[in-house]
Computed example of a mutant assay.
Amino acid sequence: MAPTHQPEHRSKRCDGHSVGVLITDDHGRILIGDRTDGAGVAPVAGHIYDAHSGPRSAAIDEVREETGLTVTRLTFITSGWRANRCRRGDGPDGPGHTWYLYRARTAGQLRLAPDSYRAMWWADPAELRTLAARTVGYARGNLSDTEWAQAPGIEPVWVLWLHKADLDALPLGSKNLDDVEETLPHCLPTQAIDLTSVADDTGRAS
């Protein structure tokens, strides 16, 4: 059960509340980005009560700030407590966040926030499954931190959310999900190794 603590409005500390937004297009793809802090590949997300009045306003604002896109439709999917650590430190209820997950359609020109993402692109279900498999491998110790930084999978906290949002796109078994979930209390995002010198010929926004 999620904590019932009422958040304070603070700017630089973790408020214990996060919003995540699955931005989709007409082809069934989801907008994802390679995070600069080394956490992995993820859709848009951010804290809520540091600069926003609530989950819905945070979702709209974070999409604009992180991608330059304007939300034209926003649909609530689910919410729940997750044990993912925060680079700002623990929130008022300790490690973890109460998450609010949305699906969005957008308009405008993609313009990523370079302090948040190294690149952003539209991923189809096949790519999401490949990235999720890499995360499972990382959770099981089959990838080193350097290998993860060079070619990350989905940020661990996002694996279950993507699974819940679309079971057909990410049909992971319970053992795979459990292995990834067990990493959340121990996986603290840190600044990724510098890969800016590596040429990117994928056609992704950067």
Rank of each mutant, 00 (worst) to 15 (best):
T75A: 07
A59N: 06
S18C: 08
T135C: 03
A126P: 00
H5A: 14
D90S: 11
E62S: 15
E8R: 14
H47E: 15
A107H: 10
G96L: 10
D179V: 01
G20L: 13
P114K: 05
G141F: 06
L172D: 02
T24Q: 13
A169D: 05
V21G: 08
S197I: 10
W121K: 04
A149W: 12
A133G: 09
D201K: 10
A2H: 05
D61I: 01
R87Q: 13
R35Y: 09
R82N: 05
G141R: 13
T98M: 06
P185I: 11
W121G: 05
I23W: 01
P95S: 12
T4M: 04
P92F: 09
T72N: 03
I193Y: 05
A104I: 06
V136N: 05
L101A: 06
R82C: 05
L162H: 10
W161M: 08
L188C: 01
S144Q: 03
T190H: 10
E65V: 11
D168A: 15
G203E: 04
V136L: 03
V19K: 05
T202V: 00
D115S: 12
W161A: 09
A104Y: 01
L131F: 03
L74I: 05
A139D: 02
A199H: 10
R64E: 06
S174T: 10
L22G: 01
A39C: 08
T75V: 10
R64D: 03
